[in-house]
Design a protein around this nucleic acid. Structure first.
Length: 262
DNA sequence: TAGGCCATCTGGTCCT
DNA sequence: AGGACCAGATGGCCTA
């Protein structure tokens, strides 16, 4: 499937009328659209085309003819477009992996082929970017906690059996005795299993009511945050987490995410 | 119709 | 100098 550009939208095969991708956009004169008109760009807030760009490289900018400037702009736009498309490809790949874990009902087995079940949305709706990222993050945290739990159980088993041999462990695995390895859907979608696992492995961590259970500091601090997957990305649905990141669709976490130094 | 999500354009900044 | 990355702005599409 072509996941580039418009495929992420609802009309995969049709380029957007105004924000047309790639070749089409490049062939259209910029003055065809108000946003491309030099006047509107200069008047738009934050636009410092005539000010700072001249400040930085007066000669190169000034010496460019309008056609050359247009060509340069096209090149830059094309690069940016390609960059974002690559990012979307990677996001799609991640989404593809995470979709089975995003299904809201534990009874419905995850189906990798079924496309994008947005939590709380009708089937066929794909995961949003933010939902995909939050989902992936929590899955990673959960894997870490599962590993912890497995190690703990291994320790218990080996301590109880003593020097008898490696027998019990494979039997336990074959019997499906591991609480968290019964399928991705159960792994992620059953709050009970999450809670019991959390309670058994690290009670201290699970007891600490972090402000954000979804975007906690890390696997060490809060490895077993009881995440309600069906609420991720759903506006106002994150009942377990009061943080602004999980509640708001737009990311705004002033304290935890430092601005990239400029 | 409002709000969410998204793609694209754009200028600024940093890096090579 | 050119490319990569980032964030703001803008407008289109879709759903509740």
């Amino acid at each position: 499937m072509n996941s580039l550009s418009g495929t992420l939208g609802r009309a995969p095969e049709h380029p957007r009328p105004l924000c047309v991708p790639g070749s089409v956009a490049q062939e259209l004169p910029r003055s065809f659209h108000p946003r491309f008109s030099p006047v509107s760009r200069c008047l738009s807030p934050g636009s410092m085309l005539d000010h700072q760009s001249h400040h930085r490289s007066p000669k190169s900018q000034r010496d460019l003819s309008p056609e050359e400037q247009q060509e340069l702009r096209r090149k830059i736009n094309s690069r940016e477009r390609r960059r974002m498309q690559d990012l979307n490809v990677a996001m799609d790949a991640l989404r593809e992996v995470m979709v089975p874990y995003a299904s809201s009902s534990p009874s419905s087995p995850p189906s990798p082929s079924s496309h994008s079940h947005h939590p709380g949305a009708p089937p066929g709706r794909r995961l949003s970017k933010i939902s995909t990222l939050v989902l992936a993050r929590n899955y990673i945290l959960l894997l870490g906690s599962s590993l912890q739990e497995m190690r703990r159980l291994l320790g218990e088993v080996s301590a109880g059996v003593g020097a008898v041999g490696p027998g019990p462990v494979p039997r336990l695995l074959l019997a499906g005795g591991w609480p968290l390895i019964s399928g991705p859907g159960r792994l992620l979608l059953s709050p009970e299993s999450l809670l019991t696992t959390a309670a058994s492995s690290s009670s201290a961590a699970s007891r600490s009511t972090a402000k954000c259970t979804v975007l906690s500091p890390g696997p060490v601090e809060a490895p077993l945050a009881p995440v309600q997957w069906s609420s991720i990305g759903a506006p106002g649905g994150a009942s377990l987490c009061p943080c602004s990141v999980c509640r708001l669709p737009r990311f705004s976490h002033p304290s935890s995410v430092p601005r990239f130094p400029k």
